[in-house]
């Protein structure tokens, strides 16, 4: 059991207790949502032409494709669900408020 696995197990153990007594889940999910929004805008700037928006510099962002390819179709779905391409997400509208 090299110490890499031990360190990883201890970290998981800490995460387990963190999950069990986790009280800032709401603030954490807000931060994650903001981070995902920023990331969606970033991908829009790089790969807008997937959605049919001509991006002059798309040649230069091809280099980033391998790192971003994983959640490309998730990104496409989120972009389509936006009210307008650069605006707030549909989910942001608290319709039942």
């Amino acid at each position: 059991m090299d110490n890499e696995k031990v360190k990883e197990f201890l970290n998981n153990f800490k995460l387990f207790f963190q999950g069990a007594t986790d009280f800032n889940r709401k603030s954490q999910s807000l931060l994650m949502k903001e981070s995902h929004n920023e990331m969606d805008d970033f991908i829009l700037l790089c790969f807008g032409d997937i959605l049919g928006i001509p991006i002059p510099t798309s040649y230069y962002s091809l280099e980033l494709l391998p790192l971003i390819a994983d959640d490309l179709d998730g990104w496409q779905r989120r972009m389509v669900s936006r009210l307008y391409i650069w605006g707030e997400k549909w989910g942001d509208f608290d319709l039942d408020a």
Binding site: Q28, S29, L31, M32, E34, S35, H36, E38, M39, D41, F42, L45, C46, S61
Partner: peptide
Amino acid sequence: LIKKRSKSVTLMSMA
């Protein structure tokens, strides 16, 4: 791009 990406990464590490 760099600004947006680092903002996204900062928010994720804050989370």
